[in-house]
Amino acid sequence: MTDTQTPAREPQAGHAEPALTPPVDVIEDAGGITLRADLPGVPRDRLCLEVEGDTLTIEGEIAIEPPEGMDPTHVEVDRARFHRAFSLSKELDTAQVKAELVHGVLTLRIPKAAHAQPRRVAVRVD
């Protein structure tokens, strides 16, 4: 799985503003890949996961309703949207992706297709 710098398709209208890149952990084991992404402030209904071709796209919007007339005095997060795309390799089964969003952390489990799972090859000694 590799980061794709160029978006797979044109950004949608209204989504043209720059986005934050969420930090991720990617761990692969024999059965598949586990990806965790930090998406603080993104509720479930503002999270959009998409697999198109071999590109996995994570999009999320931060839902903050600041009180009226708030004057921002110190800003470290200056965008309201997360975006990151990854290209997936062939052996991953994109139809079986499981996603979970808890406390602003997205956990994706992408299993390897059955034929791509490692199989022990018995070595015969004649």
């Binding site: 930090d38 708030m70 921002p72 470290e76």
Partner: peptide
């Protein structure tokens, strides 16, 4: 992120997980 209004100071910490 920190913001102020005449009535309060609002602090937002992005602390997932």
């Amino acid at each position: 992120n920190v913001g102020t209004t005449p009535r309060s100071v609002e602090v937002y910490g992005f602390a997932p997980g």
